[in-house]
Design a binder for these strands. Structure first.
Length: 934
DNA sequence: TCTCTAAAGTTTTTT
DNA sequence: ACTTTAGAGA
């Protein structure tokens, strides 16, 4: 049983008035939030669906969810309905809210930073980009490609910030209008727009139909809102919080103003600083006890925070409360003459400290420090980490770098990029061959000539075929297939093979991103645009190491940025390269936000500039990551801007806790066998991921770990549209509004979105969808009123760390009064029946966990004319078996044990990626060509 | 202490 | 592509 300090207990027990928890670094914040949510749930009249908990990242959400579940399980709490408690990001919440309650948005899809930029560049006039004026004399208007990033930043700020529209130039206003119009025309949300739309609906009166439904739901169901990392909330997100609590829901915000490090992305510190003045009757609880670090680390952290002017901080004093002891020599500040000796010193230290005895908690037995207990934090990994990486490589110290290697720098990807430079006519066959030899990518018996033939056929743009035929993804996969390039044919050892395939998979992902926007473009232009995009833009966006292959965390020293280290801790932390103009960083030049939107139009515009205070907060975060050992160091950088010491370095060196000389690790210091801290990574699987994992583990690996995507199909969106139309029908049925078959046409018009179809196909699909919906409404006219749930969110916690979540299409009562779980399928080419049955049994397990009710039957209802319906009983042995299979799947995933099927099987015939895995037997070839259109 | 010129340029979540 | 900074020269 966890014991809590009086302050922590006060926060946990405070459930009535608005609560602000000011949580210093290492104060056990997540535990307190989790326990508080458990006490909310313990109240007799509260249901899980009454609770919303916001985190900033998905990772933080997963952690919080796991923590809450473990508390509830320990307290033997009834977890009925728990899937309906929302724990996640604001983006996820608003998207879910809209796509559950506002039928017009069902068909919307989400643009990423990459795809929104492509959209803006592709439609540079319609998006408002090239009509957007600036205040710089050299650049009266923004340019295509060059300024799309800046343009999108301005478009976000206009919605996320408090804007005085009278101060915004008319040209910028009309560019903004063009941009939002373009989004809605294409049924896209960017990351800001989903929150923006939800906020509009929450703030609107009840006269708009959608607003009424959304507000009604919030009024009835939302009773507790918790916001973690409140210091990073921007003004729009603050409005969302306001909107959700406007009908009296309790609000609890948690954060630390000293750890505001994303202000350049819009977070507004004043939200947290003035919270008490903006909400009535706020109870403030300060968690000042730091359980993480030694007194030396805590005191230095406090002194850094005190460099921030008092009037922009909440008053607080962090004190040490943990068991770590400070000893002279634990903290060292050293300056070096050059980068090489600084890197060498860090490596000496790492080697000398490995094996030192260390206790994670007061109770735990000490263990020897291992590689993964050390972190090196940089202000800029991309600019400063080079020399240290070099040194660690030469000494064979295991490490992982986050943010140094760009995917497109590797010779392997340059070889692949060459393929598309060849396609665009920029290089010759000989150049291409040279690139592939240089990357040593060619398999032993590579079919080079055949592969070139594939390219040349693809390059014949005047065959008069439909544009959709010139599919980049298909060409890429076919090129690899014909070349015979598979994971086991990549030259080199298995480690290299895996890495190369991971890179090739990421490239496939990049193609998908591109084709999502450029699918309907004249083929020649499309290939030219792709080559140009690869050359100029793609390289900035795709980092080689941002997804590690597999879920296992290696025992290695972590090299990362301070930003990415937020929320983490290590026994020993190094902060090297503390140079003036780098940390604190100097402001960047160039055309900036204020050339588009004048400073006076934005409240608190300073935060977009990156001030000294912001850098100080970042340094505070860096320092407080250390549990015991902290090493700050300086060496002059390669050019004259970085020759002087950082003020932060001098600050540390002046503190008594630091030694300025290294006397080495004391020879009598206790040592133990190095043993890494064991983290069991938690795995959350969606239904579709689970489906692939059951079907073929290697297919799962190719798709989700490497990132290979099948080519875009022109009819994409048909199944989703049908699905959404029926979802609306059933949701209305629950409220007693039964849809007649005359409405099929308008339902399909609202929900069917087939952006990749050529006009004739579009019309065909529309007709087919209307017929399918009519047929469904006719055949199920009388069932509609027996609809129990539509799109029911479920979640199954299979074992510690293994969760499956997904949605059940429909739950309804049959004439026989039995309860049936229904899943819709819309393609005649239905999946393997075994998998469908497994999947449905997962639904049954989830439904039982959610409602405590047992479903009697599971049904697969095919919406196609000749499609058959599968119906079968829910049986206990199957439920138990499915649970065991999920757990097994989760375990093999964590062990990265994802083998191919032993031989070509029926599933392989339906797998789009089979050729990347093994030879297709001659008997399967013709059938396959028919099925995949190749 | 002022003025001019050359040289340099970060961090990154969100389905 | 433009603003900040260091350092030279006045």
């Amino acid at each position: 049983m966890t014991t809590y300090t009086p302050r922590q207990a006060e926060a946990i027990a405070c459930l009535r008035e608005p609560l602000q928890i000011i949580a210093c670094a290492g104060s056990g914040k997540t535990q307190v939030i989790s326990q508080r949510i458990a006490s909310i749930l313990a109240q007799p009249d509260v249901e899980p669906k009454n609770i919303i908990a916001f985190t900033f990242t998905e990772k933080a959400a997963a952690e919080l969810r796991e923590r809450i579940l473990s508390i509830l399980e320990k307290e033997d709490f009834d977890t009925l309905g728990l899937a309906e408690m929302y724990v996640g990001t604001m983006h996820g919440y608003t998207l879910d809210l809209l796509q559950r309650l506002v039928p017009e948005t069902f068909k919307f899809s989400v643009l990423t930073e990459i795809t929104s930029r492509m959209l803006v560049d592709r439609s540079s006039r319609k998006s408002g980009l090239t009509g957007c004026p600036t205040s710089s004399s050299g650049t009266p208007y923004l340019h295509r490609f060059l300024h799309s990033r800046l343009f999108l930043q301005a478009m976000s700020v206009l919605r996320e910030d408090t804007v005085d529209w009278d101060q915004v130039p008319a040209g910028v206003v009309s560019a903004f209008e063009s941009y939002t119009r373009l989004l809605y025309e294409h049924a896209y949300f960017d990351f800001t727009e989903m929150i923006n739309l939800a906020v509009q609906l929450l703030e609107d009166g009840d006269d708009d139909q959608s607003a009424r439904v959304v507000r009604q739901h919030v009024r009835n169901d939302v009773r507790y809102v918790v916001v973690d990392e409140y210091q990073d909330v921007n003004p729009l997100q603050e409005r969302l919080v306001r909107g959700l609590t406007q009908f009296g829901a309790n609000l609890c915000v948690v954060g630390d103003d000293d750890q505001t490090i994303y202000q350049w992305r819009g977070s507004e510190v004043s939200n947290i600083v003035t919270f008490k003045d903006r909400y009535p009757g706020v109870r403030q609880v300060t968690l000042g006890e730091n359980f993480r670090s030694s007194e030396g680390v805590v005191e230095v952290g406090r002194s850094v925070a005190e460099r921030i002017p008092e009037d922009s901080r909440l008053p607080k004093a962090m004190v040490r409360a943990g068991h770590q002891k400070w000893q002279r020599g634990d903290m060292i500040a050293r300056a070096f003459g050059d980068e090489i000796s600084e890197a060498a010193w860090i490596c000496d230290r790492l080697e000398a400290m490995r094996g030192l005895a260390f206790s994670d908690t007061a109770e735990a037995d000490p263990r020897g420090l291992s590689w993964s207990d050390f972190a090196v934090l940089f202000r800029s990994v991309a600019n400063d980490a080079g020399p240290l990486v070099e040194e660690m490589r030469s000494r064979d110290i295991p490490y992982v770098v986050k943010g140094l290697n760009r995917l497109f720098d590797s010779p392997e990807i340059q070889a692949v990029v060459g393929v598309f430079r060849y396609m665009a006519g920029l290089i010759s066959v000989a150049d291409l061959r040279r690139l592939w030899d240089l990357a040593s990518l060619l398999p032993v018996n590579a079919g080079w000539a055949e592969a070139l033939a594939v390219l040349d056929e693809g390059r014949d743009f005047y065959r008069g075929q439909r544009w959709g035929v010139y599919n980049i993804q298909r060409l890429y996969l076919e090129f690899m297939e014909v070349l015979g390039l598979r994971e086991e044919t990549v030259p080199g050892d298995p480690v290299r093979r895996e890495l190369v395939f991971y890179q090739l998979g990421k490239f496939s992902q990049a193609i998908s991103d591109f084709e999502q926007i450029y699918f309907n473009t004249d083929p020649l232009q499309k290939y030219e645009a792709f080559a140009a995009w690869l050359e100029h833009q793609a390289r900035r966006y795709y980092a080689e190491s941002d997804g590690d292959v597999g879920y296992a965390t290696p025992d290695a020293v972590v090299l990362t940025t301070v930003h990415q280290a937020k929320g983490m801790q290590w026994p020993a932390v190094f902060l090297p390269c503390l140079r003036a103009n780098r940390f604190p960083a100097k402001r960047q030049g160039g055309l900036g936000l204020f050339h588009v939107i004048p400073e006076v139009a934005i409240g608190e515009a300073d935060r977009y500039k990156g001030t000294l205070d912001d850098e100080t907060r970042l340094f505070y975060v860096a320092v407080t990551r250390a549990q015991k050992y902290l090493f700050v160091s300086f060496s002059p950088g390669p050019n004259r801007l970085y020759r002087r010491r950082s003020a932060f370095f001098d600050h540390c060196a002046a503190q008594q806790w630091f030694s300025t000389r290294d006397n080495g690790v004391p020879t009598d210091a206790p040592r133990l066998e190095p043993r890494a801290r064991v983290d069991i990574p938690s795995v959350t699987l969606s239904f579709s991921e689970l489906k692939y994992l059951f079907e073929c583990p290697y297919q799962f690996k190719l798709r989700f770990l490497y990132g290979f995507n099948p080519p875009i199909h022109e009819a994409l969106g048909y199944g989703k549209g049908l699905h959404d139309a029926l979802a609306e029908v059933h949701k209305r049925a629950i409220t007693g509004d039964l849809t007649s078959s005359q409405e099929a046409e308008s339902l399909v018009t609202r929900h069917l979105h087939t952006p990749y179809a050529y006009p004739e196909l579009k019309a065909t699909l529309h007709r087919a969808a209307v017929q399918a919906v009519q047929r469904y409404l006719r055949e199920h006219e009388t069932d509609l009123e027996r609809t129990v749930h539509s799109e029911k969110q479920i979640q199954v916690h299979v074992a510690p760390g293994v969760t499956v979540d997904g949605r059940i299409d429909l739950v309804r009562r049959l004439d026989t009064d039995e309860l049936a779980i229904v899943d819709f399928k819309s393609t005649a080419r239905a999946q393997d029946e075994d998998v469908t049955r497994d999947q449905l049994h997962v639904y049954a397990v989830g439904y039982e966990e959610l409602t405590g009710q047992r479903a009697d039957l599971i049904e697969v209802l095919n919406l196609d004319e000749e499609g058959k319906t599968i119906r079968e009983e829910v049986e206990d042995p199957l439920l138990i078996a499915v649970r065991a299979r999920i757990k097994e799947a989760g375990d093999s995933l964590r062990e990265n044990n994802l083998p191919r099927l032993p031989a070509w099987g029926e599933q392989c015939g339906k797998c789009d990626l089979a050729e990347l895995c093994r030879d297709v037997p001659p008997s399967a070839k013709s059938e396959r060509r028919a099925a995949t259109g190749r």
